[in-house]
């Protein structure tokens, strides 16, 4: 198939970027989207031009590294799919494909289609963990957990942190990502111990990093490659409201001051 690509080129965060047009011929319909870009980059290298920088790692749809804004949608037109799992058979011969990086204040562009998503790491560092003693793995059934809770925790934990939710949200809000991380721990007894502290710290960090506010457009849920549900956002709101109203404040003696 023959394609015209309009790709965002930008040297670094400090410079102004612009779209460049590229023509590709004889692309196999069976190649993946990233393989198609590989072909383009080979061509550019052979022509002594700078190849297009884009993020990718596992190419199996589980690492969350790839992420391109394709024809106005994160990870392209296929539902529940990462960019690397998108195949060219989803496009038509002669298509013009516009490829942009994620755009959000909290995700500055590094180069071309690569953005810096370390804001997500900072949110996780703020509270996306449980404090447990290391040692032998505990027996799997020592703490009974309702099946539905464990299933839902698992579904929330499926979030790969790719940033598609932020990219597609009209407000560049990170609520789906943060709520998935809050949820998968809040649903399990091990995570409940630090639940009140966690949700407040992670939301505070999210706000501090310049993500927008959620206005419940639910675009994130529609575009998430892992089909993370917005019910996670409601759960996080619930956890947050509960923590703000009911969480005890330690006394001076308890904090050791």
């Amino acid at each position: 198939m023959n394609l015209t690509l309009k790709i965002w080129r930008q040297k670094n965060a400090g410079t102004k970027g612009k779209f460049e047009k590229y023509k590709l011929t004889d692309i196999s319909t069976e190649s993946s989207f990233l393989e198609m870009l590989d072909v383009l980059n080979e061509k550019l290298i052979n022509e002594n031009q700078e190849p297009i920088a884009f993020d990718h790692d596992c190419r199996e749809g589980i690492c969350g590294t790839c992420g391109l804004y394709i024809n106005g949608r994160p990870h392209g037109p296929e539902k529940g799919t990462t960019t690397c799992q998108l195949h060219m058979r989803k496009f038509k011969d002669g298509d013009v494909i516009t490829i942009e990086p994620w755009r959000a204040k909290a995700f500055p562009i590094v180069r071309d289609l690569i953005v810096d998503r370390s804001a997500f790491d900072l949110i996780l560092q703020a509270g996306g963990y449980t404090s447990v003693n290391t040692g032998n793995a505990p027996d799997a059934n020592s703490i009974p957990i309702p099946k539905l809770d464990s299933d839902r925790a698992f579904e929330s934990a499926a979030c790969i942190g790719c940033g598609a939710c932020v990219a597609t949200c009209k407000n560049a809000s990170a609520m789906l990502f943060v709520s998935a991380k809050v949820s998968h721990l809040a649903l399990l007894p091990q995570g409940r111990i630090e639940a009140a502290e966690r949700v407040q710290k992670m939301v505070a960090k999210m706000d501090e990093l310049g993500f927008g506010n959620c206005t419940n457009t639910y675009a994130c849920e529609m575009e998430c490659p892992k089909n993370i549900s917005v019910s996670n956002i409601a759960r996080m709101n619930r956890e947050f409201i509960k923590a703000k109203i009911f969480a005890e404040v330690p006394t001076a003696v308890e904090t050791g001051d």
Binding site: K6, W8, F19, Y69, N71, G72, R73, T98, E100, R103, A104, K105, A106, K170, N171, A172, S173, G210, F211, G212, N213, T215
Partner: peptide, 14 residues
């Protein structure tokens, strides 16, 4: 605030 969270908007937005 939401407007400020995306200083550069997309060329194509579906």
């Amino acid at each position: 605030q939401n407007w400020a969270a995306r200083p550069h908007s997309y060329a194509v937005w579906n």
